[in-house]
Amino acid sequence: METSSISAKDVNFYYGDFQALRNVSLEMERNTVTALIGPSGCGKSTFLRLLNRMNDLIPGARLEGKVTVDGEDIYGKNVQVVELRKKVGMVFQKPNPFPKSIFENVAYGLRVNGVRDRETIRSRVEESLRGAALWEEVKDKLKRSAFELSGGQQQRLCIARALAVQPSILLMDEPASALDPVSTSKVEDLIYELKKNYTIVIVTHNMQQAARVSDRTAFFYLGKLVEYDRTEKIFTHPSEEATQNYVTGRFG
């Protein structure tokens, strides 16, 4: 599967008058996991959501600067947002399956994108559920409501749902923060697996998690990108004192 690289250059982002991102520049390579860390309200979600243009929906939101995926400006004039979002999948903080069956949840992205062939849909659903390490648990109850699953299973279902449209990038906003430790470690293992085939950007408040799953870590503070480096370096010898304070928990 093709993976993609992402680059943001001199990005400023505004919610009306409020500036949520200041001059952020960040390059993410293919097949890497990038962790976004920083205190609450520093702009991690804002940054993540502008990579699939989710912020377009917010009235009064405005972006300056350039964001590219595989070298293509995703805010360019001829960009089809729908196509972009197929390429850049997203998993949200809270598991939020649709009020449909397990099967239909995963098939959703295929159906809205015009896939009709039943065999294609069936095999893609299975593949995605396997990819999200959920197949064994749900293969006998695909027709049951997705709400019957546990929170951890629902979150993996949401990951499967995102995988089904075969994106090359996966954005994850605190995907494990609403889960218990066992489910969390399952999701983390999954991220580790997925890295082979996807470029992953993950927001997390959990330092151990960032250290475990990511190759590179970006530390945001008050809308600024303070430091961006190899994860190992961020957690052992960060160049900035603020980073040091934050990762060691001596912050705020």
């Binding site: 699939n52 992205g109 809205v112």
Partner: peptide, 14 residues
Amino acid sequence: PRAMKESSLALGAT
């Protein structure tokens, strides 16, 4: 829930 709508849009739905 807004998240539900956003998930749909994030999957490339119009």
